[in-house]
């Protein structure tokens, strides 16, 4: 998988290294910006209200 990506990057080893680093940073950015904020409310740690709902809702019973 990673070998396949490496082989398909252009340039010599240095250029490939720089491109790989940029790719890794882009993936980490996408994870922190979009994927993790979406996934995090699915975990139970945010349930801090009493509202009868299992997920942290908007206090529907209030």
């Amino acid at each position: 998988m990673y070998g396949w990506i490496w082989r398909h990057l252009p340039g010599n080893a240095w250029v490939r290294g720089v491109i790989s680093l940029v790719l890794v940073l882009a993936v980490v950015y996408a994870l922190f910006q979009y994927v993790f904020p979406w996934a995090e409310p699915l975990l139970p740690f945010g349930d801090v209200t009493v509202d009868g709902a299992s997920a942290g809702g908007a206090g529907a019973d209030q």
Binding site: G46, V48, T49, D51, A55, G57, A58
Partner: peptide, 30 residues
């Protein structure tokens, strides 16, 4: 007390009293 609200601070239960008023000023937090 929506999920997005509690990510920025403490959340006041809508419909409960205001601070200082008679009633119950209810606040949730992480």
């Amino acid at each position: 007390t929506a999920v997005g609200t509690l990510q920025k601070g403490l959340g006041h239960y809508s419909g409960t009293a205001r601070p200082g008023d008679t009633g119950n000023f209810a606040v949730a937090g992480h």
